[in-house]
Computed example of a mutant assay.
Amino acid sequence: MSHTLLIKNMVCARCKMTVLQVLKDLGFKVQSVELGRVVVAERENYDYTNLEIELNELGFELIKETTEAMVEQVKIALIETVEKGDADFILSEVAKKLGKNYSALSKTFSKHEGMTLEKYLINLKIEKVKEYIQLQQLNFSEIAYSLNYKNSSHLAKQFKSVTGMSMTDYKVLQNWERKSIDQIV
């Protein structure tokens, strides 16, 4: 038998490794690790109190509430989508993936996070744009295409409205003020 733990702010491969190490150090028998989710073998003598303390010290949090778990699943789905560069992605697909009604999911997300799903996705994309600019991997048109923008001018307008500066200014300044993904909301 197994038990699933949902963990907030677990948003990258490094996070997975860190959480896995904490669990192993505390004697948990880990069966699988995914972003935001860990499956452990069921045992009565696990020390969940120390696990919670250790995770909190590292910026993670055990999720206990159903609504919070759903919001975290939405965030993970959106983060994975942006990281994959899924140009054909539509927000309503997140709801389908989670087996929820999009309208209800959107309202729950907005109420819980104080930001709409659309705004959260835009902020994720803008942080990805900053990463691409900093790493000089793609030109502006390629960045726009990879993040599902109709054209680079649409991206440029959105970038400026979120950051207050143009993409060119951001590139020239080389003041790489980026937010970590878990700090967007």
Rank of each mutant, 00 (worst) to 15 (best):
K128W: 01
L138C: 05
S146F: 00
N151K: 14
A144Q: 03
K128P: 05
N148S: 14
E127T: 06
Y132P: 01
L147K: 05
Q136P: 13
Y149K: 03
N123V: 01
I133D: 09
K130N: 05
S141E: 13
K130I: 01
I126H: 06
K128T: 01
S141T: 12
I143Q: 08
I122K: 15
S153E: 12
N148T: 10
E127F: 01
Q158V: 00
Q134I: 00
L147R: 04
K157N: 06
Q158P: 03
N148F: 02
A156P: 14
L135M: 14
I122E: 10
K150A: 12
Y145A: 02
V129A: 03
K157D: 10
Y132I: 01
K150I: 06
L155K: 11
H154Q: 13
L147I: 00
Y149I: 01
Q134W: 06
E142R: 09
Y149F: 09
E127W: 03
N123Q: 10
V129C: 13
H154A: 10
F140Q: 08
N139S: 12
N148M: 02
I122M: 11
I143L: 04
E127L: 05
Y132C: 04
N139K: 14
S141G: 08
I122Q: 15
A156Q: 13
L138Q: 07
Q136G: 06
S153N: 13
I122R: 12
I133P: 13
L135C: 08
Q136A: 09
S141A: 12
I143S: 09
S146M: 02
E127P: 14
L124A: 00
N151C: 03
S141P: 15
I143H: 13
Q134Y: 04
E142S: 04
S153W: 13
N123C: 03
I133G: 10
E131R: 08
A156M: 10
I133T: 11
L135R: 11
N151T: 10
E142Y: 04
N151R: 06
E127Y: 05
V129E: 06
Q158S: 04
K130L: 01
K157C: 07
I133N: 11
H154W: 14
K130W: 05
L124H: 02
E142N: 13
Q136K: 15
A156V: 08
S153Y: 15
L135A: 05
N123Y: 13
I126M: 07
Q158N: 13
Y132D: 04
I133V: 14
Y132W: 05
I143F: 12
S153Q: 15
K130Y: 03
N139W: 09
E142D: 12
Q158T: 05
A144M: 09
Q136V: 08
Y149A: 00
K157R: 09
Q136N: 15
S153P: 11
Y132N: 02
E142I: 06
H154T: 09
L138I: 00
A144V: 03
Y145D: 12
L135Y: 07
E142P: 13
L135S: 10
Q134V: 01
Q134K: 10
L135I: 07
F140C: 11
S141H: 09
N151I: 08
F140E: 11
